[in-house]
Write a protein that binds this DNA or RNA. Sequence first.
RNA 1: GCCUGGGUAGCUCAGUCGGUAGAGCAACGCAUUCGUAAUGCGUAGGUCAGGAGUUCGAAUCUCCUCCCAGGCUCCA
Length: 660
Amino acid sequence: MSDLEVLLPDGSRRVLPEGSTALDLASAIGKRLAKDALAAEVNGQLADLSATLPAGATVAIVTPTSDKGREVLRHSTAHVMAQAVTRLWPGAHYAIGPAIRDGFYYDFELPGGDHFSDDDLERIEAEMRAIIAEDQPFTRSEYSIEEGLELFFDQPFKVEIINAVAQGASEEDLAEVASASVVSTYSNTPAFRDLCRGPHVPSTARLGHFKLMRVAGAYWRGDERRPQLQRIYGTAWESEAALAAHLEQLVEAEKRDHRRLGQELDLFSFPTEIGPGLAVFHPKGGTMRRIMEDYSRNRHVHGGYQFVNTPHIAKEELFQTSGHLQWFADGMYPPMELDDGQNYYLKPMNCPFHVLIFKSRQRSYRELPLRFFEFGSVYRYEKSGVVQGLTRVRGMTQDDAHIFCTREQMSDELASLLKFVLDLLRDFGLNDFYLELSTRPEGKAVGSDREWQEAETTLSKVATDAGLELVLDEGGGAFYGPKISVQARDAIGRTHQMSTIQLDFQTPQRFDANYIGSDNARHQPIMIHRALFGSVERFMAVLIEHYAGNMPTWLSPEQVRVLGVRNDHDAYALEVASALHLDEVRVEVEEASEPLGSRIRKAKMEKIPYILVVGDDDVANGTLGINARGSNAPERGVTLEEFRGRLAKEIAEHGSPEAL
RNA sequence: GCCUGGGUAGCUCAGUCGGUAGAGCAACGCAUUCGUAAUGCGUAGGUCAGGAGUUCGAAUCUCCUCCCAGGCUCCA
């Protein structure tokens, strides 16, 4: 018998008897590794531990604490769930069940069109634990297409996948089988077999640190014209500790949910009387908005923008010309009929209005680039199931601008714009970005191939030159042009779409907007759409979650609260407050009718940056005690002047408009 | 839009088998005057999301409508 040699990730080589499996390799390396091993990566391809190794292969053993290991665990757990469901609902059809971030899901169709309820999750979990306790092996087999169809004759979704693969399949379908001509399956018991490429853990006993999270409807193949299946989401980890840590993280994320903080901090609400996705801002939220908007306005003044204002509704014809009614009608509120059958629409975007301002008189090349800026409120009809807090609303205000420039100016304009955006976002404390380039939406776009090509190339170059990570979003552009969006990662690593920059050759053409060039001929300007906050509402939501409600001092609705120790200190407290008020600090006094501890607690819960406590010593010496947010060691005996200086400095450094 | 779960005092929530509405916090009043995360007592507060039905009787059971959350696609 001859030997085979394999290459390990550390560059070392190992000789094994021919026919050795990945598990044999793990055992040869060490007992501990053999015990931990879940699967193997052979020449870059994930494989079962039972796979025999080809000579010369590069082999890495996959263990539970790696991303790949977790993926295998999650995928195997999904199979266990499918088996549990088929045990509890004989005749259930199972569709697909992949590993996803932090967990897995599986889609089912239950006999008689039954639906899972929340209570079913417990029963399914119990059945899964029984399967795990049975220590069932995952056994791989391979079949021809015909044999596969025969094996899964009573599983219509599996049959559809096998047929799709046989006829030249998508990547997605291939994930379910071994290749276009080989159908691979994994069986745990004679009673349960699933179509799957694998790999899987050797036995169900290797699983167990999981929790079923929720049930949901999901359309077969994500297509709302197809039947809706019953999806169960679960999370699975390598250990109880990792599972607990994940669940804990979910609790933490919920604590910084902007909807919850918006309620707790009295920032905004969604009165049902007004309608879904339509927010009202309370005084504190209104103050935050004002600060954000003022800062942005100031930035735009310095950035060479001109301020414009436009109405919220316009005649049908405007949106015919712009193309919105043709391409964006689904996102618009229905028209209101006025006068003699004239239809008016609420505006979903500001661009047509800004074009009309451009067109209001003859323009010269000497004026370009022209930059029109507006906090423009727009209304979009979002489907009832998709509105979400301040991040997906039906009425919002965009910090919107449209730049009209020549083709030659386009590149430079985009490059400086990108810098402008990133600087602004950094001033708000976001500094981890990547860019996403969204290209032509298939079958839903105006303009020629050549124009799209040019626009996409230009954006892509500007994005690359900015030196940030660039991700391609195929077909994600607007109907009139491609876009770059700036994605920001927040304090707990989630990403949010913020600013968008879109190139548009179409709109100027549709409106016949032009300027007189140096050659005394008419030319069409290029139009750049851009919103830096995206929407003021969404931006505020992202900031609230990023800071967990602890807004930097310059953005805090109330920056300082002054508390007298006893009520005979209230007069001094008011004196301190009015001094700060002269510095334009947002300051309140709470008089001493409650115990000091109680008033401090209240101010802490309101996340006010500075609580000033003043008592006998302070009245005598003109000082104050500072209890800063996030600190539990108050500072005593600071002079008022000292505090004013510190506060002014902090606010200036955090990018207040005065700092420009 | 579709699937699952939910909507009870301003907020967070309890409410058993269908028998006439509860708590804590907040608010208000009185007392308390206090040096860094909850002073005490009291008062008031409800179309149980809205509508219809079943019933002697509905927060509770049925149907319809509205709204919220999660998912259907990204993202976490």
